[in-house]
Design a protein around this nucleic acid. Structure first.
Lengths: 199, 199
DNA sequence: TAAATTAGCGTACAGTTGTAAGCTGAAATT
DNA sequence: AATTTCAGCTTACAACTGTACGCTAATTTA
C-alpha cells in the first residue's frame, strides 16, 4: 500500500473518531487529544503527524460539517423540483438530516456559540452560505427584491436551526411536532415578507 | 458579623467569580472548581462548604441569568407603556441588556446548546417563560388567537436570541446593524401572523 | 463558662492532560 | 544496493484536575 494513502487513511480515522466522540455530552473544546488518539487507535503523539493542533482538527470537522450542509441543501432542491411545498419539503429534509447526522449538526450548533472565536466564525460562514443559497432561491421563486429576500432567508434559516436544536433532544413524535410548529412560523415569515414587499 | 451572613457573602463571591470567568473563551463545562475557587479567593476544598458539585453552581448561575431575563422583560414593558413601537423598544432593550450583561447572556446561549442535559433543560425553561410572557402580550395587543400568538412569540424570541448571539461578537455599529435586521424580520413575522389569522 | 458546630485551610494523592525527545522499521529515493 | 524519509511508537515530565482527610479558630449553643 502507498504511503500517502496509508497516511490519509489514518487521518480519516482521526476525523471519524472525533465525530464519534461528539455525542450529547462532549464538545470540541472538551475533547482531549489523547481521547481522540485513543479512539482512533494511535499513540497520542502520533496525532501530531496529521494535525499541528487539536484546533486544526476542529476546523477540519467544521469544514466537513459545512460540506454535509451543502449536500443537504442540494438534496432539498432536488426533492422540491420533484414536486411539493417548498417549506414542507425543506423542513422535512432538514429534520431527516439532523436525525441521521446528529453529531454533525451538534457540532455546528455547539461551536456556533462555543468558546473558540475561530470556530464561531467558521460556523457562521457556513450558515451564511446556507442563507445565501436560500436567498437566491427566494428571489427566483417569489420574485422579491434582493434585500427583502435576504432578510426572509436569514429569518427562515435561523428558525429552522433553532427548531433543529430542539429536535436533537427530542424523540420522534416530538420532532414531528416541532417540525409542524416551525413550518407555520416559516409561513408567517413568508407571508409577512411578501406583504411587506407589496406595501 | 453573623455567621450565616458571612457564609452567604462567600457564596455570592463564588457566584460572581464564576460569572466573571464566563468570558468569550470559557464555558461552564470548561470551568474548573479550582479556578473558581482561586478567583473567589478561597481554598479549593472550601468550595464544598457551599456547593456539593460544580454542577450545582452551574444551575445556580442559570437561575440567576433567568432572573435577569425576567427583569429585562419587565423593563421592556415599562418602556413600551411609556410610548414607542413594541418591536423597536423590545429589540433595543434586549440589545442594551446584552451589551451590559455579556456574560449572563453568553451563559444562556452557550448552555442552551451545551453538553449538560440538565443545563440545556434549565435554559430551555427560562426561554419558555420568556416566550409565554411575550405570548400573553401578543394576545392582548394584537387580539390574535392564543395558538397563533404563541407561534408568533416563539418565532420572535428565537430570532431575537439569534441576533443577540451575533451581537455578542460585534462592535457597536454592527450591533445597530444587526438590530435593524432583526426588527425587519420581526415585522415579517407579525405581518404574517396577522395575515394568517385572518385567512 | 464549657461544649459543640462549622467555614475555611493545608496537605496529599491518584488521574488526566499536552507535548518534548528519541527510536524503529518500512517505504521511497538515489 | 545504499541512503534518506517519515508514520507511528515508547518513555518521560511538568502542569493541572477533583476530592479525601484532618486541623484550626471563631462563632453559636447549652
Amino acid at each position: 500500500m502507498n504511503r500517502q494513502e496509508q497516511k490519509l487513511q489514518t487521518r480519516q480515522r482521526i476525523v471519524d473518531a472525533a465525530f464519534s466522540l461528539l455525542n450529547e455530552d462532549k464538545s470540541l473544546s472538551a475533547m482531549s487529544l489523547r481521547e481522540v488518539a485513543r479512539e482512533a487507535g494511535i499513540a497520542p503523539t502520533s496525532f501530531y503527524r496529521h494535525f499541528t493542533d487539536i484546533n486544526e482538527l476542529g476546523l477540519t470537522l467544521v469544514d466537513e460539517a459545512g460540506l454535509a450542509l451543502r449536500q443537504l441543501m442540494r438534496q432539498a432542491r432536488q426533492r422540491i423540483e420533484a414536486g411539493g411545498g417548498v417549506i414542507d419539503i425543506s423542513v422535512d429534509t432538514f429534520m431527516e438530516f439532523i436525525t441521521d447526522n446528529k453529531n454533525v449538526f451538534r457540532l455546528l450548533l455547539r461551536e456556533h456559540t462555543g468558546t473558540s472565536g475561530a470556530f464561531r466564525a467558521a460556523v457562521a460562514r457556513e450558515i451564511q452560505h446556507f442563507i445565501e443559497e436560500l436567498s437566491d432561491y427566494v428571489v427566483l421563486q417569489l420574485k422579491l427584491p434582493r434585500n427583502i429576500a435576504t432578510m426572509q432567508a436569514e429569518a427562515m434559516v435561523k428558525l429552522v436551526f433553532s427548531a433543529g436544536a430542539e429536535a436533537l433532544d427530542s424523540d420522534k413524535p416530538s420532532v414531528v411536532e416541532t417540525a409542524k410548529r416551525v413550518k407555520l412560523q416559516l409561513r408567517f415569515v413568508q407571508l409577512g415578507a411578501v406583504k411587506y414587499a407589496s406595501r
